[in-house]
Simulated scan of single mutants.
Amino acid sequence: MDASKQDKFNEEKLNSFIGQLLSDLGGAASVPLVRIGDTLGLYRLLHEKGPMTPAALAGASGYHERYLREWLSAQAASNYLAYDGKTGAFSLPPEQAMVFAVESSPVNMIGAFDMMAAMVENQKMVETAFRSGKGVAWGNQAGCLFCAVARFFRPGYLNNLVSAWIPALNGVVEKLQRGARVADVGCGHGVSTMLMAKAFPNSTFIGYDFHEGSIAEANAHARAHGVTGNLRFEVGLAKDYPARDLDLVTFFDCLHDMGDPHGAAAHVRKSLKPDGTWMVVEPMAQDTVEANLNPVGRLYYSASTMICVPTSLAQEERTALGAQAGESKLKDVIRSGGFGSVRVATSTPFNMVLEATA
């Protein structure tokens, strides 16, 4: 950089930006530490037993004190744990416990750290795709991605799907209570499908996904949780799954990943009864880039670059909507399948729930 250009920078802005980068790097460095804390049950122990010194945590966990001391200090420096200098004890405040230790919490974010690790593992494949323009097939992505995605979305589904999202749809709760036929397309490990099957035992549910490994995991989870009477999982594509005369079709955080979402929309319309409903849950996004330049958009654009766009570009049609497609573009895709009415039924800071009917 020549001297004339160096003289033009604003030192205050530069220092502010360096401060931001230090925070970003600290967050990135925390990814493996958070995952260790989760895997080894350290957050759970601190949540259950309260403040502990490194020696006390070593005694309770059986892990090496020296490693624990460094891990605890790093967590306190990140404000993930609290530290009492008088007692030398570390604790997990209740607010942080909601993020790291309480599995049923609506803001449990452990799955997000697993996703960050998967994105790093994806780097070489996606970097190659930048050069070639080709995609990275879902089944070829990082090995831990599928479990991470299921874990990341589970808190939102657990706390919203049955209590808020389905009731926001016109007349759907009543149909499910009486007994309806439902297909959950792009079901992954089947978290959403099982939640619905448990809540509405009079209805029957079929979970479809094109990834055989995910369907195997979904079937295993259903057996483990005893949810098999009104539920089954099958390998199937969004454009040609065999179920017909459906009362409800659900797509959870998957339409934007599809190579041919227009074809999927047309197939959904054909598979529904005339009075059936299509529920599409997608990441929250506005219709312009500038409106999405915020913390949620930052997370979703990054995940879209590393996961969603490569997945779509590996399929037919290669539409690549991306995780921040926005309401207008999503509605256009849904209407292209023959749906006359499309509306945002409800939303959260992380999701929009679209309802489509004939």
Rank of each mutant, 00 (worst) to 15 (best):
G41L: 12
Y300A: 05
M1F: 04
D2T: 05
K331C: 05
Q20F: 15
G133A: 02
V249L: 01
A60Q: 10
V280Q: 06
R232Y: 02
T250I: 15
Y241S: 11
G186E: 07
N160G: 13
K8N: 07
L45Y: 08
M115V: 02
V309R: 05
L21F: 05
G190I: 11
A29N: 11
A164S: 15
A112D: 13
E282I: 14
L57D: 04
W278Q: 06
A314H: 03
S163P: 03
D253H: 12
F251G: 08
V185F: 06
G186V: 05
Q324I: 08
K175V: 04
A358M: 09
F251D: 14
T53C: 00
G340S: 11
R154E: 15
P54V: 04
F130N: 07
E12F: 07
V268I: 10
P54D: 05
T311W: 00
T204C: 10
M284K: 15
N15Y: 13
A118V: 00
N160D: 14
G50R: 08
K329E: 15
Q315Y: 03
F200Y: 15
S203Y: 09
R69F: 06
Y83I: 00
V191H: 14
A118P: 00
R244P: 05
E121S: 01
T87F: 00
R151T: 14
D275L: 00
G263N: 04
Q20I: 13
P51A: 03
G19S: 06
A97V: 03
A77C: 05
A303I: 12
R181H: 09
Y67L: 12
R66H: 12
R44Y: 12
L145H: 05
S312T: 04
M284I: 09
R131Q: 11
H211F: 10
N292P: 07
F205M: 02
N294E: 08
D247I: 04
I18F: 01
L46S: 02
L195P: 02
A101E: 01
A148T: 03
L158E: 15
T193S: 15
V126D: 01
D247F: 06
K49A: 13
N10F: 08
G297D: 10
K86Y: 00
F200D: 06
A220E: 14
A97N: 10
G133V: 01
R151M: 10
M196T: 07
G213A: 01
A265L: 08
M279V: 15
G207N: 03
A76F: 03
A137H: 13
A55T: 08
L145G: 01
A97G: 09
T87H: 00
G111I: 14
Y80K: 06
N15I: 11
Q315E: 14
T311M: 01
